[in-house]
Nucleic acid binder design. Structure first.
Length: 464
RNA sequence: GUCCCCAUCGUCUAGAGGCCUAGGACACCUCCCUUUCACGGAGGCGACCGGGGUUCGAAUCCCCGUGGGGACGCCA
């Protein structure tokens, strides 16, 4: 049987890091096994689903390069199918109408909680042989409930967590269609996973408790039960759960914040999954290696430091033209217009090894295209009255040489020797004057790249 | 409260009874390189939650604690 996996987010917000990892693992599992990966938008919650969120999820998937073979399917467009299935179950007696009001159920829940019981439906409207159902109230439109078995156990061999068994006695008759007739999550999932022929359901840990109910419904429908793999959650850097209020961040935010998709992908791959000592690998390699056997069942904490390290690695490895395109965009956001000279690719070649972030890289190279403003403390510290004459002499000599890093280096060396100075004594003021910074690559290389004209002009400004 | 899940360095993890005086990676520290800051190179610090079993032998298996997390919606 060919492998078919799916990613089924609800469009109530952006694609966050946990969802992205779930999608990544499902995607990789399909790729690894030559199967299909399906995207399904679970938008049956009219209250909270938004088209913006749908778009945000699609954008996130695209940025990460998680392409799907089928979909996106939208559950709201599949109502006919759900209604048909609902009727089938009603006819078969595996589902029934329930006229209990919300208030009634609320009261029930409360009293059960007080008694220290697990809150659950009391089965008031559950048809039973020999049982007389209450009179149907006229003012209540009914919900539909699944008639869950009351005895025995539901068990499955979770591909991540191992065997899990739950007594049916722990389960109650869940609502599968609301009073307005729309089906609920647990029912749609079951119908879709069944009809879409999903073979492995890879999803978040928080669905473990839904699994036994879904298995029971699948069985009631006569469907083959897929395999399940429940991924543990990703905790924030502080070890706390991620939520809208606490640290949950859109994957697109990582793009904004200067991360390369390759770094995010590689990082996410290693969160909860491993392949021996392998740390750095691309997605092709990942798809070859990926398996469910090496997923950790415990929760993982997000660690920005390691992401940064991977980001540094991928910045070094990136195709220089692709990198230049990205950095040019970021420079534009900094109101810096990239000119033809010096070539951005050359600048990046000199700078890319020194950073772990694209935004940082952009701001570090900005001075090539816009006049830098050195901070006062640096100016005072390095542009001393003693050194300025030396720089002036150097500046004059620089005006008449071949503009190569070697020649520049030789000139600096010459003045350093003449004045019996140390190299940094001259290099530092040059840095401040030319880059506005006290940190840069070799100053001779910077000057070579900046060009003779710009270099002399910037020096001149400080020598007046 | 009830049910379910989890537990190796600060963090991500390797580990399927002897290969473990527990390996790798990030971070941290030291040194080297050096034209500043990085990069890079070489070292270092650092963990099997506790207690009982099982076994010749347990990080690995079992039980009990403890701690953490999840679920208990006409949300997904």
């Amino acid at each position: 049987m060919t492998v078919r996996t799916r990613f089924a987010p609800s469009p109530t917000g952006f694609l966050h890091i946990g969802g992205a990892r779930t999608a990544l693992f499902s995607w990789a599992y399909a790729k690894k096994n030559g199967g299909q990966f399906i995207l399904r938008i679970e938008d049956t919650d009219l209250e909270r689903s938004t088209p913006e969120a749908v778009q945000a999820i699609l954008d996130g998937m695209q940025w990460l390069g998680l392409d799907y073979d089928e979909g996106p399917f939208y559950q709201m467009q599949r109502m006919e199918t759900y209604k048909k299935m609902l009727q089938t179950m009603l006819d078969a007696g595996t589902a029934y109408y329930c006229y209990s009001s919300k208030e009634e159920l609320e009261a029930l829940r409360e009293s059960q909680m007080q008694q220290g019981l697990k809150p659950r439906y009391d089965g008031k409207w559950r048809p039973e042989s020999g049982k007389t159902l209450p009179a149907i109230p006229v003012d209540i439109s009914p919900v539909v409930r699944f008639r869950n078995p009351q005895t025995g156990v539901v068990a499955w061999d979770d591909l991540v967590k191992g065997r899990i068994e739950i007594a049916n006695a722990e389960l109650d008759d869940l609502i599968i269609a609301r009073a307005d007739g729309t089906p609920t999550y647990n029912f749609c999932v079951v119908v879709d996973d069944f009809e879409m022929g999903i073979t492995q359901v890879i999803r978040g840990d928080d669905h473990v408790n839904n699994t036994p109910r879904q298995i029971n419904m699948l069985k009631a429908l006569g469907a083959t039960v897929p395999q399940y793999a429940h991924l543990s959650m990703i905790l924030g850097g502080d070890g706390q759960k991620l939520s809208k209020r606490h640290g949950a961040v859109s994957v697109m935010q990582y793009h904004e914040d200067g991360y390369l998709r390759e770094a995010v992908l590689n990082y996410l791959s290693r969160l909860g999954w491993s392949h021996g000592d392998a740390e750095v690998f691309n997605m092709q390699q990942f798809c070859e290696w990926f398996d469910l056997d090496h997923i950790t069942p415990s929760a993982a904490q997000f660690n920005t430091e390691k992401l940064n390290w991977l980001n540094a690695h991928y910045i070094k490895e990136a195709n220089i033209d692709v990198l230049a395109l990205d950095i040019a965009t970021r420079l534009t956001k900094l109101n810096v217009e990239v000119s033809l000279q010096p070539k951005l690719q050359d600048v990046l070649a000199l700078y890319r090894e020194r950073t772990n972030n694209l935004n940082q890289l952009a701001s570090e190279v900005a001075y090539f295209y816009a006049l830098p403003k050195a901070n006062l403390a640096d100016v005072e510290k390095h542009l001393t009255p003693e050194i300025l004459p030396v720089i002036r002499t150097l500046s004059e000599k620089l005006g008449i040489i071949d503009w190569t890093a070697e020649a520049i280096h030789a000139e600096i060396n010459a003045v350093v020797a003449e004045n019996q100075l140390k190299f940094p004594k001259v290099a530092m003021p040059l840095r401040v004057m030319l880059t506005g910074n006290t940190q840069s690559p070799s100053i001779d290389q910077v000057m070579a790249l900046l060009g003779q004209k710009l270099t002399l002009a910037r020096l001149q400004k400080h020598l007046i």
